[in-house]
């Protein structure tokens, strides 16, 4: 059963992709609990199932078997609309490829989750401005993705993920397309958000990036290989601080 204290709880998750007559077992019995306020790095070789797990946690996909709970609610019991609302209200997702709408400027991109919100979210424009300022893009609000650098685009994506006050921030290789300096800046931002109480889960294959996290989970062949606390968190942060 679900761990009462965990904000994210997974039990015996499997994910099998069927392509023609071939089956790929991307997740093979994964059980995992993440408590509110944790900063978790998920690592492992390419193809080990990291993204598959992240998509399940982000309520973007459903497992082949197993159960998962977000905030104590079992996702298997939720309708498509419930899942949409969960993605809107509880989870912020940051993609490796940013996934910004090309024809809309930074401000409009950040407003998007707020416009789909069903609960009262207050002044949408003010909130969009606020999060853009938080990620350091207060002066670039009317720039379209094309007019922004990679690091700036990822900041817009993070601002979008944050706009509706999520309790969980999920990022699938958020710095994979960025240079080292920008990577440090983005990770610092995530660490700050985590300090404000947001649970952060980051997929990465860069050990330097994983150093920012308080817990490191290693994947291999769809299974958790190791799951360790990271006592060197602060050092990691300073080492990259620049």
């Amino acid at each position: 059963m679900a761990n009462e204290k965990a904000i994210i709880s997974c039990r015996d998750l499997t994910k099998i992709y069927v392509m023609g007559d071939q089956e790929v077992r991307a997740l093979d019995g994964v059980s995992l609990d993440i408590r509110e306020g944790e900063f978790v790095a998920i690592m492992g070789p390419s193809g080990s199932g990291k993204s598959s797990l992240m998509n399940l946690i982000g309520a973007l996909d459903r497992p082949t078997s197993g159960e998962m709970w977000i905030n104590g609610s079992a996702l298997s019991q939720m309708s498509r609309d419930d899942l949409a609302d969960l993605r809107n209200e509880t989870i912020g997702f940051v993609f490796q490829q940013f996934n910004l709408l090309a024809r809309q400027d930074a401000f409009q991109n950040v407003r998007l989750p707020l416009r789909y919100a069903r609960k009262d979210v207050g002044d949408i424009d003010a909130r969009a401005k606020e999060v853009l300022e938080l990620v350091g893009l207060g002066t670039r609000m009317d720039h379209r993705p094309m007019q922004l650098s990679g690091g700036q685009q990822q900041r817009v994506a993070i601002a979008r993920a944050l706009s509706n006050h999520p309790r969980i921030l999920l990022a699938d290789e958020p710095t994979g397309a960025l240079d080292t300096k920008t990577t440090g800046e983005i990770m610092h931002l995530m660490q700050d958000l985590n300090k404000q109480g947001i649970t952060v889960v980051v997929i990465t294959h860069e050990p330097e990036v994983a150093h920012y996290a308080s817990r490191q989970i290693h994947f291999r062949d769809g299974k958790i290989e190791t799951d360790t606390a990271n006592p060197a968190t602060l050092e990691g942060k300073r080492a990259h601080g620049g």
Binding site: A84, D85, R87, E89, F93, N99, P113, Y116
Partner: peptide, 10 residues
């Protein structure tokens, strides 16, 4: 993407 940030099917 719209669905990922919370758009419902409707």
């Amino acid at each position: 993407l719209r669905m990922a940030v919370g758009a419902r099917g409707g």
